[in-house]
Design a binder for these strands. Sequence first.
DNA 1: CTCAAACGGGG
DNA 2: GGGTACGTTTGAG
Length: 822
Amino acid sequence: MPALKFCILDADYITEGEGRSERPVIRIWGKTREGKSVLVLDRTFEPYFYVQPRDGLSESELKLLAKRILQLRIEGKGPKRVEKIKGRKFLGKPIKILRVIVGVPPDVPKFRELLKEWRDVEEEYEYGVNFYKRYLIDKKLTPMGWAQVEGREAKPGKGLRVDVVFEASSVKPLEENGYPKLRVLAFDLELVEERGKEKIIMISMMDNKGFKKALTIGKKKTLGVEVLGSEGELIKRFIELVQKRNPEVIAAYNSDRFDFPKLQEKAEGYRIPLILSRDGSHVTFRRSGRVSAADIKGRIHIDIFDFIEHILRATLSSEVLTLDMVAKELIGEGKEDMEWKDIEKAWKKKDLKSIASYCLQDSNLALKLADNLLPQIFELSKVVGQTPFDVSRHFYSQLVEWVLIRKAFDIGEIVPNRPKYDEVMRRRKVPPYVGGYVQQPKEGIHDNIALFDFQSLYPSITITHNVSPETLDCKDCKVNERNQVPDLKHHFCGKHNGFVPRVIEELVKKRVEIKEKLKRLGERSFEYRALYNRQYALKIIANASYGYYGYAGSRWYSRVCAESITSWGRMYIKKVISMAEKMKYNVIYGDTDSLFVKIKTRKEARKFLEKVNSKLPGIMELDFRDLYESGIFVLGKTGLAAKKRYALIDKKGVITIRGFEKVRRDWANIARDTQENILKAILKDKSPAKAVRIVRRIIDNLKKGKVEFDDLIIYTQLTKPIEKYEQIGPHVLAAKKMRAKGMAVHEGSTIAYVITKGTGSISERAEPAEGADVKDYDPDYYTNNQVIPAAMRVLSGLGYKEEDLLSKKRLEQVSLSKFVKK
DNA sequence: CTCAAACGGGG
DNA sequence: GGGTACGTTTGAG
């Protein structure tokens, strides 16, 4: 029988036929080693879900139940079969279960709905697993892994842009490494507002085969830019070029929420079919979480921002996830300065060259980021067993969940249901349990700091102490065999390995193996990069497993498990801190699984590490991160629960900031700029006194009216029609005033306003920026609600009070020596 | 104190 | 397209 080897890139399903004969077709999109694009069609897989009968049902009653299910009808159509399944378990205990096989995927929730209230039905399971995900799991297929399809080759039908179509009789996973070279195309849009309407003025594209293009609208020919006659023409040309370049991956930055919705809206308006797919279908939007993801059949649309927001954010030192900051950190290359409004100015001046260079720069960065991140996304796909499209949009909790679901299938465990809405709410309302241990920072500026942290503290605890919902408070092991939780009256079984610890242990073991292999490989090799990314994927999933126990939407939710893990965590970090102190080291700050210690040399740091690790049990291990020249540590707002707020400078002068940059766009520029300047004064000039002087000068300027009007404007969006607001915030009242003046404001408008002097609430004193008089602004508001809160985030930790910023009297000489602790 | 609403990324 | 899926902060009341 003809067979073909290919790498799985994406999967989905369609249906064929109608009524009773309607059936699903699984489609797997892939690529061969030789570079041929493949579409595999599998008609052999059927949708199903599980039904658990009421406890204590006799054999004959069970048969009757199965028969009754089989007799259900939806529009004359019944389930295909009902099977009694043996050997399944639920949370470790044997369970009686029926499997209901239906015609097409949408029948699953319909039939479930019909039988869920029945007296003889206890519960239904696995009705919420997407059909194509179900297929990948049941067939043990892994995206970005290889598979062999057997069956018959078919002609690509009309409108199918693939080299080979294969009708499968079977698809089996293969143990092979690597993946084919993929063509990646990045793009970017520029829009301006013209007469109150948004308009796409440019689209740039770039791919990893050297293709580069900027498209714009106009009449005049411009060097290096292709000029189209209208916005519609522009979009059509973009579609044409995408199809011509025929990429496997389409990447952009924030394209789920911005570029594709805009393209879709415009294309619809002009009645242009937005067909970028390989099967002739339009771009569709799939809800995933709170975002709609733009889906292009046969190609992988990766929104780089989504992946960074969900997964990479935690490892980035930047807290601002703009393309500029992210690119600077990941590829060492940022954007040229061009403020958002400058694009509009350039457009009015017909300065196409500037816009094109800006737009191409964005495509270029998106392409480089894709080049950098795709290998990580692909490894995540392999570990989780879900498509790159999906894993790049998942949260940590979802990654963990899919790993667990896959494993559950492999060992015959029925997957617990997602909690219902009420249950999620109940879980959220429960008072929080004690988290990680925080050793209050010794506030101020410190020199010579070494950072240590536990490598995977929580996963290590989960494995070492067998923390799992079904091993909790077991009755079948002796007291001295148990894993007793330090601060709680709970224990975990010492005899039988729990489901979750088993899965996590597998991840950790694989990671250890890979790390061993890495030691023998040159850092430059392709294999090294791939394996490095694999171990990283394993690490982040293992680390997220703890959070999954405490996540309100979890299928394997267990507050006690989460609580127990943090309890052990506190025990271990306290142990390390007290060891450090016994060795006469000064511990500046400790948080959950990390500690900052005053240590001068790397050698000394290593020595300290060795001593500590020799005293830790099992797989618990402390790591040495880095040595820093100096840093400032600041207490959180409450003073009690210290937040993670510190800034460090390493030996090369690179600044790491945590927890300060939280000033958002609905703040006035004056607050944002002030905060930035005082951080610079402290870290670069090491002068808190200078920082205070900066704030005082700004406050003084505010009083004297020596400020730029633009720096006072606050931008807030109307997210619903004005009439629908219950809470009338400042921007809502400003919008009403605008409307009264005959200006067009509607849902989605961004309202620019300033707060003026006078009486009444802040909202009542909000005036639209356009038409407001510079002289009318309220210096007190800008001082107390903008500049001071922004400044105090940094300065409170250095011992300053609000009064210090406000007082006119000369501040006593604050020298660096007061803060630098040698 | 609670509740509603906004932000993020993009332009 | 197989229910729902973020986490944090500000201002009003």
